[in-house]
Design a protein around this nucleic acid. Structure first.
Lengths: 343, 343
DNA sequence: CGTTAGCACTCGACTCAGATGAGTGCTAAC
DNA sequence: GTTAGCACTCATCTGAGTCGAGTGCTAACG
């Protein structure tokens, strides 16, 4: 356990380092108004903190910088809560005041606002359609071979995909099936669609419909979960403005990773147990490229079900307090908006 | 006009510089097997070429590098045609052999292949729905206030947007109008939809339908051209591997511009008069950030109508021949595929 | 006993001079 | 017209020297 003074010093060092990006020395800490000790005393404490693993020294004659463990302690115990500036709250409120009526627009816009406001990179995970349910299904023939399957979800999102129609299936038959589907499967969660298709409609369809096999295959691909979650990135180049990434090679790996959607999906996957805001520091991200980055994420939800997440990626030397504050507000407001929208 | 020998030397310098990224000296040109002159002779010619504006010298004691004018001449007169490697042709053919059945997938995939193959950044402009026509229109009510308008185009693309329905319009009325729309406006080009809506249906609707004004407004927003062209980027980080962009500040401007969709849209806007492959060198791009970049574009089309374009962005020191070859093949094949698809 | 002043020491960052060498322009000879 | 030779330029590299921020340790102080 750290003493009160050690906590105070650690806090001061992290704060200083976050704003200056330079190793901080005992003297500069001592000179702060709120610290009543001489450099020598600070030095002793710093040596102890280093031994405990909270600080590191780039080289002997430099100041100290926080280690991952130091950041972790800072985030867990020292972050000043409730620190979103009123100006920022205003921007977010203004954002929600605009009436945007497509989910995708909202998310995209939010990503931009976040990256502009924080000067870090924002990574948003679009709403997971997985847990939404079917509102309407439709099959529009394009020509004699293909058709467009359209799925409208309960949240108003529209998914579509092209399917091939075997020649032996007639149009009228197709229509019958679609009607049946709409009458029986509306309000069924998307992820249960396929099983319900077989369990509830299988028998009835087999009776009324010829070419059962071929038809089922068509529906199978039509209902295939194309419902991937989408990643919305904004401000990726903000990474380049960080002094720790002035070396092109380092930043290359990071930006490359940002183009790899599957990896990002995994990283942002909403943790249902999470109490709200999650912070992954450096190696906690389990990815070499992000070893010097921190990822702060929050989720937004509908009916208590986490739908997607919003994240900010920055250097480990990140303004944790500010970003956590902003993310907290945005995720809460986003959730509120969704609740109101689909009341 | 350049002499044959000057053209040969210019060609050699551009080739050398493209592959080495270092200023090329008279000695190294002279040593090439196919050049039968001593360094001194080459030097004289180089001095002439510099005076003519085709070459520049970073400083007195360095070799020469091609100027923008030099690249322009190279592209216009010296590029060895037909230079796509068979291996590359193979990759492209393999790509078209896979059956992808959604336009978006094709474009996205093509972008990735292009950037991987060239190690530059690929920028693809999705098909312009502007010139396609209406295949089907539908309005699906979500709740008592809103509905989703779905437009399926002749190329099988599905556009959707949420609209607000005024309370005074009844469901049955809405349905009538949608049916009318489908019977009268199918096969009308999207960009004519709105005018045709008024000219052909206005009268009839005014007769049959109450709340004409409100209804027209709904249809107006529903048919609003949300049909923006989409930009598909891939390999943006390849820029970072180019030695001329090892400085973070320079590359920052470029990457920032790549996030600005409207500017990219303008740059890639298909030039209908273009004979095929367009090359914009350096300042020809009319954008400061791209002053040291070249953008090579080609278009793909349907029924002779340019639908979208594919572009490769790299440093001015770019493998013009190879990239032009690849783009040529890809655009041709893409056009052929579209023709076959919507025959 | 905790705190502080003093001091020797470390080590990266900066500066400056000299050496290196790739490449040029010019002149004169072939 | 072409080429050999040579003086000249100038970016880059190298190593020595200096600077200064910061440390650890020891001894003195309240």
């Amino acid at each position: 356990m750290l003493t009160e003074r050690q906590r105070m010093i650690l806090n001061a060092i992290v704060d200083d380092y976050i704003s200056s990006a330079e190793p901080v020395g005992s003297r500069s800490i001592s000179k702060r108004g709120d610290v009543g000790y001489s450099p020598a005393t600070i030095r002793n404490e710093m040596a102890d903190l280093e031994e405990l693993g909270f600080l590191e020294q780039p080289h002997t004659s430099a100041g100290r910088i926080p280690s991952h463990k130091g950041y972790r302690y800072y985030v867990d115990h020292l972050v000043p809560w409730n620190s979103a500036e009123s100006a920022e709250v205003g921007t977010i409120r203004a954002f929600f005041a605009e009436k945007l009526n497509a989910m995708e627009q909202v998310i995209q816009h939010a990503a931009m606002i976040l990256s502009n406001m924080t000067n870090y990179t924002s990574i948003l995970l679009g709403p997971e359609v997985f847990h939404t349910s079917l509102r309407h299904f439709q099959l529009l023939p394009l020509d004699d071979k293909t058709a467009v399957a359209i799925i409208v979800t309960s949240t108003g999102q529209v998914e579509n995909r092209t399917v091939n129609i075997p020649p032996e299936i007639s149009l009228s038959e197709m229509e019958k099936v679609v009607n049946l589907l709409n009458s029986k499967l509306v309000n069924v969660p998307l992820y249960k669609l396929k099983t319900r298709l077989y369990s509830e409609l299988g028998e009835e369809m087999q009776r009324h419909i010829s070419h059962y096999e071929e038809l089922m295959q068509v529906l199978d691909t039509a209902l295939e979960s194309d419902h991937e979650q989408r990643i919305y990135l904004s401000g990726a180049t903000n990474m380049l403005t960080q002094p720790e990434f002035k070396d092109v090679d380092k930043v290359k790996n990071i930006l490359d990773l940002l183009e790899e959607t599957p990896t990002l999906l995994k990283m942002l996957a909403p943790v249902s147990g999470g109490s709200g805001i999650q912070v992954k520091i450096g190696t906690e991200n389990n990815h070499e490229a992000f070893a010097n980055c921190s990822l702060i994420t929050a989720t937004y939800s509908l009916d208590g079900q986490a739908l997607g997440s919003i994240g900010i990626l920055g250097p480990t030397r990140m303004e944790y307090a500010r970003v956590m504050g902003i993310l907290g507000i945005l995720s809460r407001d986003l959730t509120a908006m969704l609740a109101h929208w689909y009341k």
